[in-house]
Each structure stands twice: as C-alpha cells, then as structure tokens.
Design a protein around this nucleic acid. Structure first.
Length: 486
RNA sequence: GGCCUCAUCGUCUAGGGGUUAGGACACAUGGUUUUCAUCCAUGUAACCGGGGUUCGAAUCCCCGUGAGGCUACCA
C-alpha cells in the first residue's frame, strides 16, 4: 500500500511550488490507489500561523486535492499537526531511545561557541563539522548541567566514516561522504523537535512509503537516512522533484511576482489549468500530449517520466492553457465559472437580465477570454446606457458612404418584426447591403458595428445585434445618424 | 569556499548509440473570419565546451564550464 504525504509548514500562503509538490504526491497516490496524507509541520511556533494553515487547506480543497488522512480526517496515525504530536510527547520519547542507544547526546554549547567553530571552518574553506565537544561528557557532568537548568539541545551522533548512498527514484543513486556530515540537532533548546528529526519520526510512525519532495531536500536526505538507520527501520523511497524557477532561473519566490495560489485563483485561472500546467513542469505524458484532464494524468503518471532539471514558470503558456480550457466550456459552465468574477459595478446592471441572456452575453466572448477576470474589460459593450452611447459615438467620424450604409441598415432593421429578428435575417440584411454597395464584407460590417456598439471591436457582430435587440439598436442608430458628422 | 543536483530551440519538453533531432508555448508570415481574438497552414529557432569509448555519440564515460540547491536550535 502506497502512502505518501504532503507536509507544508504554515509559514505562508499556499505557494505554487508547494502546490506542485502536493500535486505530484496526490497523483502518485491516486495512480497507485494509495493514501495521500496531509501533515502540518508547524513546529516553528514563531513563523507558523493558523491563517496560513487555513489558506493552504482551502487552496488544496479548491483544487480538488482531497486528503485521505490529515488534520480534518483523523485515523490511527494522527494527529497530523506536529504541534499536536508534540503534546503527545512522541518526539521526546524517540529522542530518549536514541540517547539510550548511544546515537544521540546532550549538547550544552552556546550559540556563540558554535558560531566560532563555524567561522573557523569557513576560514579554512572546509565543511563545517561540529567539534563534538559535548559528546564525551560523563553521566554526572550531564546530570549536573541538566539540574542546573542549563540550556541544551540534543544532537544526533552521525557515523563518522563511510559512504552513504540512496536510490532516488528520479535521479538514481546519490552518494554522500559521511565524514562531511555534521552532528545535527534533534531537539531544540525549547524542547521542540528539529525539522530533520520530526520528519523522520512522523514519516516512520505514519508508515510513509514514498517521500516525494523538492530537490532542495536532497541534502537533508542523508541525515534522515542516518536516523532511520539508528531506529533500525527501513527507509522510505525518495523522489526529489526538480525546482520551479523564476525567469532568472533561481528558485521561484515572491520577488518573481505572483507565487501564491490565491493570486492565480483571484485573477481567474481555472483549477484545471493550474493542475495541468503545473504537472507539465517536470512531467510529460508518454505521447507528449499536453492538454490532459486530471484523470488522464492519474492514469498516465509515472515517476520515471519526471525530468531532472529545473523548470521556469512561464506565465505565457499558462495563459494560453487557460484560454484553451475556457474555450472548451459550454455556455452554462462558462457562465457559472465567470459570474463570481464580474465586477460589482456591472453586477447591478446585469442582475435584471434573464439568466439565458447573461449566459449568452458571456458566451459571446468565450473565444476572447484568457482569464475569467477579462470579462470585465469586455462586458461594457453590452451595458452602455444611451447616455454612455452618446458620449462614445461622438468620438467616431463616419464617411458619407459609411453613413449611407448605416442608414440602409437602420431602414432595413426597422422593417423587421421583433419576432423575426434572427441571425439569418440579419445576415441577409447585411449581405444585401454589401451586394448593393459592392466591396468586401468589412466595408459594411465595420460601420454597422461602430454605429451599433460605439466600439471598434467586440463579440461576433450578429450575436451582438441579436442580444442587444431591435429597440436599443434603432434608438442608437437614429441618434448616430442624426448626430454624427459626415 | 565545501557538499549535492542539473545541462536539447527564447520557454516547457520528446528522443537515451545510426532520427531530415519531434511536439507545445512564444515569435514571424500567409489563409479563414467584419475587426481584435479564435481557428488552420507554413516558417525562424536547440543537443554548453573539450577529451575519450565506438565503425558511428545529442545519447555512454571523464574533465571543464555554467546554472541552481543546501550549508541553522527554518521547514
């Protein structure tokens, strides 16, 4: 049974990079019919905030990456917040085991002392290794210091020599020289577990089979493997994902602009787009198809098709893909998706519209939309008042020929029964005018569009005319003919 | 600095001993369309460098170079 986890620390909103890590874990679990576990790594009490946790949870929910186990869904493996696990004393229990087996020891060194050691190593251009000053203290010494309430940490005793290697499922074998790995902190002086210690204890106790995480964790892996060894427990499989990069090829961060999933959601990116795009940053389908539903992705997914090099987050392609997904939607779906994005200024005006009309208006733009919020730049063409129209049309200059065409159109339109106003009818009228005037279609359709909408571009003209309706059109056309100069 | 990872069009990638090095985004040109957009067609554009191994290397090995990550009592 495959068990994977996504373990964010709630020190910020859900980030594009962490989302992709979550996504790969989730897909891997689904592909293998395993469990996807969410664990909150909130041992850093200074930086962790409840609101961030909520943001992360909410974001993942929105994207449909539902957890099988986690803070909200408990099981025998819980609790799923490290702060809560801390209260059950599991970390101190496991630290004790390591101390008793001689794999860990108390360290009373002060920050200043350690700083000095580190500086010295830096000066000599060698890897910093803790001096192990505190390793060989007698029991009495330790006891005395503990009783005197001296501040301490517990450190892990890393085996001093040999090579440690592990098989990374994406990169194959990775080797480390143990003599270059320093003893590291297990328990901080505030008695909370360090990251490297907490992950191992939790992954071990939660029976995690595959650790899928960012490449930035490769250098933590040997330390963690040492811990598994000390506990005499089999290590999980490791897979280190390539980084997501900003345009300057450094790790994607805030200074590259929008990185929180929130921002993308608010701008009107669809969850399908985000999921599809993100999975393509590092993974590709066997047939190289790119537009894939989440179910197709789950079916086709495998770790060995993940690439090893970092990938730049390219907003242009993301935009293209969002447009693709929007164009695939039917009118009702598009309307449902887009309504929440319509600006307040417009919602009042359109609230009176029957649902079908609004749906039709929205759909008339479906080929122009890249982001759902784009609707607010397009919508005005349908909701100008007569006053708005007058101001806008005054900026147009029509030639006498154009005015002639506008007149013909007005005359023909006025003779059509309201009930008979159809796409075919309008097409017919426009075609007839075109035939009588000669020249291309544009010659007729452009002035008609200008006169009817006071805009140079917009949705499909026929659709626009039908939606706007004969009454409004005639009012506008009459005004246009009477008030614009030739 | 040390350790680790990575290296195919501008970007995301396929290909992993013999390919006209393929696709997608972007860009350019043309076509359809009333315009913009969409859509369609075409085009420009890549194997980091040097050594090996081999009949043959983008592909395997080594060395450079470049980029990134880690180097905390953060995660």
């Amino acid at each position: 049974m495959v068990r994977v986890r996504f373990a964010p620390s709630p020190t910020g909103n859900l980030h594009i990079g962490s989302l992709r890590t979550a996504l790969f874990n989730w897909i891997f679990a689904k592909h293998n019919k395993g469990s996807y576990i969410l664990r909150i790594e909130d041992t850093d009490s200074l930086r962790s905030k409840k609101e961030y946790e909520e943001n992360i949870l909410e974001g993942l929910e929105w994207l449909g990456l539902h957890m099988d186990e986690g803070p909200e869904i408990n099981s025998k493996y819980g609790p799923y917040r490290q702060s809560e696990r801390f209260n059950t004393h599991i970390y101190s229990e496991y630290v004790e085991k390591l101390i008793n087996s001689g794999c860990a020891y108390y360290c009373f060194c002060t920050d200043e002392e350690l700083e000095l050691e580190r500086d010295a190593a830096q000066k000599k251009n060698i890897t910093y290794i803790y001096s192990r000053k505190c390793l060989n203290q007698s029991r009495e010494e330790v006891k005395k210091k503990l009783e005197s309430k001296k501040s301490y940490t517990v450190k892990f005793k890393v085996p001093q020599s040999g090579t440690l290697s592990f098989i990374d499922l994406i990169r194959s074998e990775i080797k480390f020289d143990l003599s270059l790995i320093s003893d590291f902190v297990l328990l901080k002086s505030d008695k909370t577990p360090s990251y490297n210690f907490a992950v191992v204890v939790d992954d071990m106790l939660m029976n995690i089979t595959h650790v899928i995480r960012g490449e930035d964790h490769i250098s933590n892996t040997p330390k963690q493997i040492c811990l598994y060894n000390a506990f005499k427990v089999k290590t999980p499989h490791f897979a280190h994902l390539p980084m997501i990069l900003g345009p300057d090829r450094s790790k994607l961060s805030k200074r590259h602009g929008a990185t929180s999933v929130n921002e993308y959601r608010e701008k009107g990116y669809l969850k399908e787009t985000l999921l599809n795009y993100l999975v393509l940053l590092g993974w590709s389908a066997p047939d190289n198809h790119e537009i894939l539903s989440i179910n197709e992705i789950i079916k086709l997914f495998s770790l060995d098709r993940i690439s090893r090099s970092g990938a730049i987050f390219d907003i242009t392609k993301l935009n293209w893909m969002n447009g693709q997904y929007i164009r695939k939607m039917d009118a009702a779906t598009l309307a449902d998706n887009i309504k929440p994005f319509i600006a307040k200024d417009f919602t009042d005006k359109i609230s009176a519209y029957p649902a079908e009309k609004l749906e039709r208006i929205i759909y008339s733009f479906h080929e122009k939309l890249v982001l759902l919020t784009d609707i607010n730049n397009l919508l005005p063409v349908y909701i100008y008042s007569m006053e708005d129209y007058k101001i806008m049309i005054s900026q147009f200059d029509f030639s006498s020929e154009e005015k002639d065409i506008i007149c013909s159109f007005r005359n023909e339109l006025s003779m059509v029964d309201m009930q008979d106003l159809s796409a075919a009818k309008l097409n017919n009228i426009l075609k007839n005018i075109q035939t009588s005037k000669g020249g291309g279609k544009g010659r007729v359709l452009k002035p008609v569009r200008f006169a009817c909408s006071a805009e140079k571009t917009g949705p499909d003209l026929i659709e626009f005319l039908l939606i706007t309706g004969k009454e409004t059109l005639l009012e506008r056309l009459n005004y246009c003919i009477d008030n614009t100069l030739t």
